[in-house]
Design a protein around this nucleic acid. Structure first.
Lengths: 137, 137
DNA sequence: CTAGTTGCAAAGCATTTGCCTGTGG
DNA sequence: CCACAGGCAAATGCTTTGCAACTAG
């Protein structure tokens, strides 16, 4: 089986580099979805040479590899979170003050009840807005 | 009272122009949220000289005037719908096939139940994904 | 070695702005 | 008349891409 797979297959071998480590760890340490710029800011602390283009490329690569998941909010630039956080069905909360985005566990039922007649439902997204615990103090 | 208001007040007098008519009617005729480019495409049929910059400026103006409401979906460019459609609390559905966005009336309850502890809730947004009636046929 | 990576700069795109001409009232 | 509007082109701001230098394995 190994021999068969080796014939004519151009296999992709991602390398372990300090930049990728820094990006992955920035997401892990934050524990919430981050924009590419936020990732750069955090990761630059440990890897000052890091460039924004590398962050974009790496996030795209990690996304395809299934290690990070994109988080799109209305009117906001794309953020990313670790796939581990995205494994369970969840939604998001954005703070009116600091703009940070947080994961929200659980899901209210009854989504299907509001579906227009003749339409079919595949998925849904819920975004909450208000003040996060930190900004309420 | 009129006299008082006239002193030193630089009052804004929006004009009735064919461009604004065309933009407003495009939204009315579509009956669903449109992107600026979609508005241009539709409105250009009756007003060929219309430019994209004018569409952007006019939509922004109509928004401030409360005549149209912005519709932001995750990862999508901003769309606009007539304020009449936005007056009642509603959500949105985006078709997987045609990408069109439709208004969805009603709202499932229980949103507050999933709010993280220490957070306060001001508003929420729900987006449904699937196939619209037209694309299911 | 050498294919995969990176940083920088340039390219793309959607949206916004500046400026001068056109026009509704 | 003339302040408001519109059209065009230049300017933004964010994201992607091209390319030559660099490095993990």
């Amino acid at each position: 089986m190994l021999a068969l797979c080796a014939i004519g297959i151009d296999l992709f071998v991602p390398r372990k580099t300090p930049q990728r480590d820094a990006i992955h760890q920035a997401l892990a340490k934050a524990g919430r979805p981050l924009s590419p710029q936020e990732v750069l800011d955090l990761a630059s602390k440990t890897t000052p040479t890091l460039g924004l283009a590398t962050v974009y490329r790496t996030l795209g690569m990690l996304e395809e590899a299934g290690q990070v998941a994109p988080v799109d909010l209305p009117g906001e630039a794309r953020r990313y979170e670790l796939q581990a956080a995205a494994d369970t069905h969840h939604h998001h909360f954005q703070c009116d003050d600091c703009g940070n985005v947080y994961d929200v566990e659980g899901c209210p039922g009854g989504i299907h009840d509001i579906l227009p007649k003749g339409f079919s439902l595949r998925d849904h997204e819920i975004i909450l807005y208000g003040k996060c615990a930190a900004c309420r103090s």
